[in-house]
C-alpha cells in the first residue's frame, strides 16, 4: 500500500473567545486508509472536521487536505472530498435516481458523466427495481449505502463520514462497512467520526480526542495493548477518566 499522505494536520487549533475547542492537534492520514476520528460529544470532533472540510477557519496551526491548504484553498478541498452525515443528506421526497443526479449536478459533473455514474451506482447497489422510488420509502440500510455512494459521486479522494452507522442492525452495519472497505481498497481515503467505540475497531487507525486534544493515536490493537484493555470502550473510559 502506498504511504502517500493525503491529510496532514500540524498543531491545528481553534478558539472561540477564551474557549479552546481544538487544541494543537497533529496527525497524518495515508491514502486508502480508514481513519477513525473518535471522541465524546463535545470533545471538539465536529469543530476539527469543519476545519478540515473548509467550513471553519482555524485559529492557528496548519493543515493540508488532499494537498490543499485549509486557509487558502477551501474551494479546491471541497472539490476533492465527499461528505456523508448522520442524517444521510439525501432528499427523502426525491427518487433514488434524482438524488444521485442532483449531487452529480452540484459537483458540476457533465451530463453524460452523471448518467453513467447514476447507472453505475444503481447497478452496484442493486437498486434497479427501486431507482424510481422516492428515497423516503427505502429501508434504513439502503439509504445509508445510497448516501455513501452519493458522497462519492464525484470520485473524491477523501470521504468524510460523520457518525454514519448509529442504530442499524448488525447485518446492515456490515454491508455498510464492506462498502467502505471496498472504497478504501480502491484508494479512497475514509475519515470516520463516531462516538461508538466498537465501531472504531473497524478502522485501520484511530485517534481519540478528549477535551480538544488528541490523547491517543494508533491501530485499535496497539491502543488496546497500550491501555491493557479488552475493548475500545474500555480504552476510552480509561482515557477519559485520566
Amino acid at each position: 500500500m502506498p504511504s502517500e499522505i493525503v491529510i496532514k494536520v500540524n498543531n491545528l487549533t481553534k478558539k472561540f473567545g477564551d474557549f479552546t475547542a481544538v487544541d494543537q492537534i497533529t496527525f497524518d492520514v495515508k491514502v486508502g486508509e480508514i481513519f477513525g476520528f473518535l471522541g465524546a460529544n463535545g470533545a471538539g470532533k465536529t469543530t476539527a472536521i469543519k476545519m478540515l472540510i473548509g467550513l471553519n477557519r482555524p485559529t492557528d496551526g496548519e493543515a493540508q487536505v488532499a494537498g490543499y491548504d485549509v486557509y487558502r484553498e477551501t474551494e479546491k478541498i471541497k472539490q476533492n472530498i465527499g461528505y456523508m452525515s448522520q442524517k444521510f443528506s439525501l432528499y427523502e421526497d426525491l427518487s433514488v435516481r434524482q438524488n444521485i443526479e442532483f449531487y452529480g449536478g452540484i459537483y458540476g459533473l457533465p451530463r453524460k458523466a452523471i448518467r453513467k455514474k447514476t447507472d453505475e451506482i444503481i447497478q452496484k447497489l442493486g437498486l434497479q427495481d427501486r431507482a424510481k422510488k422516492v428515497v423516503g420509502d427505502l429501508p434504513l440500510g439502503w439509504k445509508q449505502r445510497l448516501a455513501f455512494a452519493v458522497a462519492g459521486v464525484h470520485d473524491p479522494r477523501i470521504i468524510f463520514l460523520d457518525e454514519p452507522t448509529g442504530g442499524v442492525d448488525p447485518v446492515t452495519r456490515r454491508q455498510f462497512w464492506e462498502m467502505i472497505y471496498e472504497s478504501a481498497n480502491n484508494g479512497v481515503t475514509i475519515f470516520v467520526t463516531t462516538h461508538y467505540m466498537d465501531e472504531a475497531e473497524y478502522c485501520d487507525r484511530i485517534s481519540i480526542m478528549v477535551d480538544g486534544e488528541i490523547k491517543a493515536l494508533g491501530t485499535p490493537a496497539e491502543l488496546k495493548a497500550k491501555f491493557s484493555s479488552e475493548t475500545m470502550d474500555d480504552v476510552f473510559i480509561k482515557l477519559a477518566r485520566g
Binding site: 456490515r174 464492506e178 472497505y181 471496498e182 481498497n185 475497531e201 473497524y202 485501520d204 491501530t219 485499535p220
Partner: peptide
C-alpha cells in the same frame, strides 16, 4: 489487508459465513 481477506474467506467452501467484526 482486510478487504482482500473478506473476499478470500468468502470463496472458501468450508466457510459458511464471513462477517467483518472490528479488526
Amino acid at each position: 489487508d482486510s478487504y482482500k481477506l473478506l473476499l478470500d474467506l468468502r470463496t472458501l467452501p468450508f466457510a459458511k459465513r464471513t462477517e467483518p467484526f472490528g479488526e
